[in-house]
Computed example of a mutant assay.
Amino acid sequence: MKVAMGQFAVSREWQENAAICIGLMNNALAGGADLLVLPEAVLAQDIADPDRVLKAAQPLDGPFVTQLLAASRGNTLTTIMSVHVPVEGNKAHNVLIVLRNGEIIARYVKLHLYDAFAMQESQRVNPGHEVPPLVEVAGMKVGLMTCYDVRFPELARRLALDGADVLVLPSAWVKGPLKEMHWELLTTARALENTCYMVAVGECGPRNIGNSLVIDPLGVAIAKAPESAALIFAELDPQRIAWARSVLPVLENRRFVRPELQPR
């Protein structure tokens, strides 16, 4: 599988962000990508106005996603990102969506809300309650996660037990003391402990770190982006997963097993 990672600074105007997303989709397709991963919350954001995510939130049949679906028609590129969708109580869901050939083929409402490091995502967002689905892309099974989810190893393990070869992580990882180190450490750990690829894409700009990366199943970083806007590519090899799981059979060697966490 050839994966593309498109990181950019999300603006307060959804029209600008839609145009950037469509441009990245076109460039990823031209580069031969099977999968494009974009950041978290790409519909609209404003550092000076934290409520912007609520003011700009749209249903999945709104103009933002409709434009992206139209741009996805007629090809097999799979595109993943998250957007804010309004719900009752003047709040939103942070919804990861998977687009392919004019359709939303999967969606996932973020489970773990970022109530940490003096931030409170739950003030504006309600959590989801369901384990993300797997999506097949170019013969590989892709598990869905969003940003803060990476700090909870049980979710990545559940997806691996369900059969994930690849974990994707659209993110808006906030800058701060040790935060870049946390980003690399956590994404590497989730890949290595589950012998999966990790494709983690971060928003860049004045608040967030960018630094999108791909970690292979033995913890090797095979692609990295800088702190600025970028589109980078990486090749994911199923044989590398098979090799990693043969020499490091951690999924087979587990001793603490709960029945409800067994593969479906």
Rank of each mutant, 00 (worst) to 15 (best):
105 I>E: 02
106 A>M: 04
106 A>Q: 06
107 R>S: 15
108 Y>P: 03
109 V>L: 08
110 K>A: 08
110 K>I: 02
111 L>E: 10
113 L>C: 02
113 L>W: 02
114 Y>A: 13
114 Y>G: 03
115 D>G: 00
115 D>F: 01
115 D>V: 03
116 A>G: 05
116 A>H: 11
117 F>P: 01
118 A>E: 15
119 M>Y: 08
120 Q>R: 14
120 Q>Y: 14
121 E>I: 10
121 E>T: 07
122 S>L: 12
123 Q>W: 11
123 Q>P: 02
123 Q>C: 11
126 N>T: 14
127 P>C: 09
127 P>S: 14
128 G>S: 12
129 H>Y: 11
129 H>V: 10
129 H>Q: 12
130 E>T: 15
130 E>W: 06
130 E>P: 04
131 V>R: 10
132 P>S: 15
133 P>S: 00
133 P>M: 03
134 L>E: 07
134 L>N: 07
135 V>R: 00
135 V>Y: 03
136 E>V: 07
136 E>T: 12
136 E>Y: 00
137 V>N: 03
137 V>F: 08
137 V>C: 08
137 V>H: 06
137 V>R: 07
138 A>C: 11
139 G>E: 12
139 G>T: 03
140 M>R: 11
140 M>I: 05
142 V>L: 13
142 V>H: 00
142 V>Q: 01
143 G>P: 04
143 G>Q: 07
143 G>R: 02
143 G>F: 02
144 L>W: 10
145 M>D: 13
145 M>R: 05
145 M>C: 11
145 M>Q: 13
146 T>A: 08
147 C>K: 03
147 C>Y: 05
148 Y>Q: 07
149 D>W: 01
151 R>I: 06
153 P>W: 06
153 P>I: 06
154 E>Q: 13
154 E>T: 15
154 E>P: 07
154 E>I: 15
155 L>E: 07
156 A>K: 09
157 R>D: 13
157 R>F: 11
158 R>S: 06
159 L>I: 04
160 A>D: 06
160 A>R: 10
161 L>T: 04
162 D>K: 14
163 G>P: 06
163 G>S: 10
165 D>C: 08
166 V>S: 05
166 V>C: 10
167 L>P: 03
168 V>S: 05
168 V>H: 03
169 L>Q: 01
169 L>Y: 00
169 L>H: 00
170 P>H: 07
171 S>F: 06
172 A>Q: 12
172 A>C: 14
172 A>V: 04
173 W>K: 09
173 W>C: 14
174 V>N: 10
174 V>K: 13
176 G>S: 11
177 P>N: 09
177 P>S: 12
178 L>A: 12
178 L>C: 10
178 L>S: 15
178 L>I: 11
179 K>P: 00
179 K>S: 15
180 E>Q: 12
181 M>K: 10
181 M>Q: 11
181 M>F: 11
181 M>E: 12
181 M>P: 00
183 W>T: 05
183 W>C: 06
184 E>H: 13
184 E>A: 13
184 E>M: 13
184 E>D: 15
185 L>W: 05
185 L>P: 00
186 L>G: 00
186 L>D: 07
187 T>I: 01
187 T>M: 06
188 T>S: 14
188 T>I: 07
189 A>C: 04
189 A>T: 05
191 A>M: 08
192 L>G: 03
192 L>M: 13
193 E>C: 14
194 N>E: 02
194 N>C: 08
195 T>P: 05
195 T>H: 11
195 T>L: 10
195 T>S: 15
196 C>H: 03
196 C>I: 08
